[in-house]
Design a protein around this nucleic acid. Structure first.
Lengths: 129, 129
DNA sequence: CAGTATCCCAACTGATACTG
DNA sequence: CAGTATCAGTTGGGATACTG
């Protein structure tokens, strides 16, 4: 039996709670954006450059979504011309600390496992010269 | 500065590692399937019933994927007619324990926050009678 | 710079029906 | 039961071009 005490009802609870979590922060980009902002606020293009593969359209939409749900805030500095906009994470994003660190650790472990596996396969089934 | 020690380079590491994690277990269904199997092995239809909203086609594809990546194993009992197939999680899925529990905790907390927010809004902006 | 609008295609998904 | 095939509908996301 995995995950410690997993009675049937606790499993249902986990299913629902994890479902809620995935609904809020699931998807390809949300966590990456939050992580990218976790070492300080960034401007739009700066943020786009720091997240490989994301397009402006998608970034724009995701930022709206994250702001509406209280994960980030949008700071407009109207003094400058053209206007400068900074995005930063809110305190609420800090509550994701454990989630991010668990994913971070697991992801690093998993990457090593994959690498190790591929190395074994090269030894066991060497490519035809 | 969020997430404890987040130097610029650690942020890049987190981005990559979390990216790897999301690549492997991201998406709408993978974690739910693993959780559904975490309180014991299940048959195909049983599993489908225990995960609200998943179709047979999608479940079939996800199971193949999860099996290829070592998260679950497929046990065929050929004695029975028609043949009986059981799915169970592997030891490797146990390494996801921390990820699942972090998501579980956060999801529960987040759900409460949403509920609380909606209650406040009903008080602050009561619906027109 | 900070986005938005538009077009377009690929991928995903649901429903249905079917097989061993 | 344990899936798979097929098709149709929807969505996600990239490229490009554009605005204030």
């Amino acid at each position: 039996m995995a995950f410690g005490r997993s009675s049937h009802s606790e499993c249902n609870g986990a299913l629902a709670a994890v479902g809620d979590a995935l609904y809020a922060i699931g998807g390809k980009w949300k966590l990456r954006i939050i992580i990218a902002l976790s070492d300080g606020s960034k401007r739009f293009n700066e943020l786009q450059r720091s997240i490989p593969g994301i397009s402006a359209t998608v970034l724009s939409n995701e930022l709206k979504d994250l702001e509406m749900n209280g994960f980030i805030s949008r700071k407009v500095n109207a003094e400058a011309t053209p206007v400068v906009v900074d995005y930063e994470i809110t305190e609420y994003s800090d509550t994701l600390k454990d989630v991010v660190s668990a994913l971070h650790q697991w992801g690093a472990m998993h990457r090593n496992r994959i690498k190790e596996k591929m190395r074994e396969e090269r030894v066991t089934h060497p490519p035809a010269s």
